[in-house]
Design a protein around this nucleic acid. Sequence first.
DNA 1: AGAGTTGTTGTCAGATTGACGATAACTCTG
DNA 2: CAGAGTTATCGTCAATCTGACAACAACTCT
Lengths: 256, 256
Amino acid sequence: MTPETNSAGKFLESYNPRDYPSTALTVDLVVFAVTGGVLNVALVRRGEHPFKDSLALPGGFVGPEESASQAAGRELAEETGLDLGRLPVHIEQLATYTSPDRDPRMRVVSVAHLALLASNGISLPKIAAGSDAAAAGWYGVHDILRGKELAFDHAAILGDGLARLAGKMEYTTVAARLLPEEFTLTQLRTVYDAVWETTLAAGNFTRKMMPQLNDTGRKTRGTTGGAPAALFTATDRHIHPPLKRFPTAPVQPRRP
Amino acid sequence: MTPETNSAGKFLESYNPRDYPSTALTVDLVVFAVTGGVLNVALVRRGEHPFKDSLALPGGFVGPEESASQAAGRELAEETGLDLGRLPVHIEQLATYTSPDRDPRMRVVSVAHLALLASNGISLPKIAAGSDAAAAGWYGVHDILRGKELAFDHAAILGDGLARLAGKMEYTTVAARLLPEEFTLTQLRTVYDAVWETTLAAGNFTRKMMPQLNDTGRKTRGTTGGAPAALFTATDRHIHPPLKRFPTAPVQPRRP
DNA sequence: AGAGTTGTTGTCAGATTGACGATAACTCTG
DNA sequence: CAGAGTTATCGTCAATCTGACAACAACTCT
């Protein structure tokens, strides 16, 4: 065993960049937003080989003076045109993909990030696709995953992103980051239904979620039919015990 | 906005390695094992500047034909001398640390991994520390975190590793990966107590954990005092709803 | 043989859950 | 403007789950 391999710190003393092929450090973005009860992901269509004309996650290079999370924020701002300084967009690191042959051209290490865009449920921000703007845009996540035709390993990254979001929604209020700052319980429940592909019971959802929300005291106005709904803001309190994604085995019918 | 920055794929067409300072890709390992009711982490003492004589996480360089997870497995085998092909060691990716100045010498991107070593609760494998073997070894995790004197950003990485383990123990059987393949409920509860720094009630723990375990039918023999305990193996079933890390508010005393 | 220790099972009251019904508050239609 | 249709919220019920703790069984040590 060579002593030099025992720690990253020690290794560097004998590290010679010329001994190793250069490595590109990139970020890929899994950007989610909900419209019309459907969870959507931002995808761009590739204009170059390999995977020309395939859909891919947006992303880009990490600059020499940037951290990966800074690069992710910058890329997101460039793609969506949103002012990240003002909008409270949720970004978190997802995982890093390092397989030596994940890009046929050279070694590309990609730090994938998950981003959640607030949406009123109707319109979504335009995606800028650079040289090939035509086909870039929003796609239904569950449809895309069932098709599995993304470039590189992006289908796996997208799957990991969905799993992360779906899992965190069990015990946190992240789902609220896909909505405006103030939202109704029905809007929030719609997000859960869209991500989990389920149908939660309204009454029980309210009971379980209320302790994690702050009531603004205000109510919706001018909705199409139905009573006005209370507007809430999210807290960072955890849901304990968590929400159940699928209802448990049905209770046996009561016998008189 | 330059079109080339819109996706990692597109960017590469215009990527020139010479434009960027070289980047070192490394793995750092958070290796956990339990002895004597305490959660321990494997640390090595640095023999070189920077952070000479400080404790650091073991780690090493990712080879040009390796993925990060392969490198993590290789490093772990080298450090512990364990045969990873035989032992079922649990390794998972934790997070990636990319701050440009996390190493003063050059840009070092580190993909941190979490590794769990099975232990009978008494002895731990020796840690090979290469050129400076003297002080490498096992340290109590909670003590180290309270002291916070690790090299680089390794205290943060260790904290993230502990948070990941503690969190996953709420709803999975990962804790069993810190024990031999067959274990008793008391051993498993000891792991929970060590990681969570709590004291779970034995009876209730049994009731909650049993559905996720397989009873081997065998029992312990020759223990020092007390009844023999049943030996179990873990399944990958999830605990639903999860275990509570801290007992809830005490129930009000019964009023007759 | 008895004392001490440990593992397992049982019990109980309080809390949580899923299903679902009742009511209130709005919009739309004619 | 009355009534029909919709929607949000609250209440109720039986089943299940939880924390606290007692009871018992099975071993070792003296």
